[in-house]
């Protein structure tokens, strides 16, 4: 069986973290969350890269929430693990480029939002579907999504739960760095990484620290308000039924 996460570090300081849980489509199971965090820990502690490209499977960057974790929340078990990925990405000392060839849904899209640069595919779909399942957005979404798509598009994405094609988002003129044909996503991300790799690793780290300060603050705010909303919305009797329906029994 393949590892959930594969790490590769090149001599020029470019790291690549590939999320490759084909069986579960990179959804946020406990194992997945642990593997991504361990991967970033390993990069930081053992390799000190200049930049990291974060990518997923060709069809799915990340599918977001795992059904079991959502049911645990319905049962009143506190589960804040998903926010750990957001925090880990924001707290790396090196910039992260999210290279999203495939779809990114819910927490999957928030991983990109927490990254420093984002490359998306015109053909793939991106959205936050929390409200489709009856509960309020989490994982920092309420604070951070607006950074990527602007506050009003973020509102529309959160309220409607619609998954937009990359080309629709491109037409909306949002902040994603590049929205290119799917086949061009890896090369575009590698090109950005190559430019960064020419810079001083110490200055890169300083800049990352400064530029991520706002996101760190946003995550703290998000944790408070999203946890509060989750305590209420996962307790609504209809939420469990809607989640069951969404995933299929």
């Amino acid at each position: 069986m393949k590892d959930i996460v594969k790490i590769e570090v090149l001599n020029n300081g470019i790291a690549h973290l590939r999320m490759q849980d084909e069986e579960h489509k990179n959804t946020f199971s406990d194992d997945f969350v642990d593997a991504v965090i361990a991967g970033l820990d390993k990069l930081e502690n053992e390799h000190n890269p200049k930049v990291c490209i974060l990518s997923g499977l060709p069809d799915v960057f990340s599918g977001g929430a795992d059904k079991q974790n959502l049911m645990d929340l319905c049962d009143g078990k506190i589960h804040v693990k998903d926010l750990l990925i957001s925090e880990r990405i924001v707290n790396t000392p090196f910039p992260i480029i999210a290279a999203m060839e495939g779809h990114a849904v819910g927490g999957g899209l928030i991983m990109a939002v927490c990254s420093d640069m984002v490359v998306a595919a015109r053909e793939s779909r991106y959205g936050v579907v929390f409200m489709n399942m009856g509960f309020t957005p989490g994982i920092g979404c309420t604070e951070l999504l607006a950074n990527l798509v602007g506050p009003f598009i973020a509102n529309e994405m959160m309220y409607t739960g619609k998954c937009y094609k990359g080309k629709e988002l491109a037409e909306k003129g949002i902040q994603i760095n590049y929205i290119v044909p799917k086949a061009e996503v890896p090369a575009k991300a590698e090109n950005i990484a190559l430019q960064i790799s020419e810079k001083s690793v110490k200055s890169i780290s300083l800049l990352k620290h400064a530029l991520s300060a706002k996101k760190k603050q946003q995550l703290i705010t998000a944790r408070v308000q999203e946890d509060f909303m989750h305590r209420l919305s996962f307790g609504f009797p209809e939420t469990r039924k809607t989640i069951e329906e969404h995933y299929g029994k």
Binding site: D59, H103, V105, R125, G127, K162, C163
Partner: peptide
């Protein structure tokens, strides 16, 4: 079509 296209 993929699953998200079909849902849409």
């Amino acid at each position: 079509a993929n699953s998200l296209d079909i849902i849409e």
